[in-house]
């Protein structure tokens, strides 16, 4: 390919932040967190203290780093060009998150469609079975598992679906407010969204408690328990992150940040929230319902 450059150059300047210590400290914090976690799992050294130190470092750095970014944003360092980078970045970040959940959904479909029926149908396929008693029906804790009651779809989970769907509506309503420069609508909408997120998490916690104490449904309840807690657990973790992000955006809105024209942070969080919402819908259908 032949490139020809012109003598006339474009005049835009891209904002390259000054050198920063935050990334390297954040990495050190993550190292401590990982090391402490391994220590805890394997009972050597003061694992929980190392984890605590790592968490403290991570939280401090994130607080300072995001504070710095907000400061840069408020000082007008970011213009359209930088804004586009953030948007692209956020979209691709959410895409990888989709693939993270895809791994767990893949595991769910695999055990439901392949491994459980195979274990149940061994006699028919081979004339021998390692698990002669096992029927291979879903939900199951496997041929060696203890009995449990699966989680029904139409109690708390249905209510949680309604909560998350409404939160999707409230955040959109807040966005309309922002676009029309209606700060009251923005703040009210965001506050409602945060509230719905918190209530969702409360219900989720209650559901877990119910599962462990009354249903015999634990992480150890075979393929059902494993996929149930892995999917709902990681979803719940993402809702927690999303709620914290929403709370930050709410606080920023109250402090008068964002304009109708420039509010990437708001939109990034909103996209994330919608993503969490969609994951829940798939989860509701395949984990709780069918």
């Amino acid at each position: 390919m032949k490139t020809t450059t012109d003598h006339a150059h474009s005049t835009a300047h891209y904002f390259v932040p000054e050198p920063s210590l935050y990334p390297v400290i954040l990495s050190a914090g993550m190292f401590l967190l990982a090391l402490g976690f391994i220590q805890m799992l394997n009972d050597f050294g003061a694992g929980s203290w190392v984890m605590l130190a790592g968490t403290a470092v991570i939280l401090t750095v994130l607080f300072a780093w995001f504070g710095k970014v907000i400061g840069e944003s408020q000082s007008g360092a970011y213009r359209d060009w930088e804004d586009r980078s953030f948007r692209h970045g956020m979209i691709w970040f959410i895409s990888t998150e989709v693939m993270f959940f895809a791994a767990f959904f893949g595991a769910l479909f695999y055990v439901r469609v392949l491994s459980v029926p195979t274990l149940g149908g061994m006699e028919a396929a081979h004339g021998f079975s390692l698990w002669p008693e096992f029927a291979g029906t879903w939900p199951t804790s496997g041929p060696g598992g203890a009995p449990f009651t699966p989680m029904g779809a139409w109690g708390i989970p249905a209510l949680n679906t309604a909560l998350l769907l409404s939160s999707g509506a409230t955040i959109t309503w807040a966005h309309w407010g922002l676009l029309r420069d209606n700060r009251r609508q923005l703040i009210l909408g965001l506050a409602a969204t945060v509230l719905l997120g918190v209530v969702f998490l409360g219900f989720q916690a209650w559901e877990y408690h119910h599962a462990y104490t009354e249903l015999g449904l634990t992480m150890g309840a075979g393929a059902y328990g494993a996929t149930f807690f892995m999917l709902t657990g990681f979803h719940g973790f993402h809702v927690t992150l999303g709620t914290i992000m929403l709370a930050v955006i709410l606080l920023r809105s109250i402090s008068g940040h964002f304009t109708a024209k420039r509010h990437f942070a708001f939109e990034g969080v909103a996209w994330y929230w919608h993503f969490v919402d969609v994951v829940w819908l798939i989860l509701f259908v395949f984990v709780y319902w069918v």
Partner: peptide, 9 residues
Amino acid sequence: TQFFDAAGG
């Protein structure tokens, strides 16, 4: 969990 254990499905 028993993702990779036949005894759990």
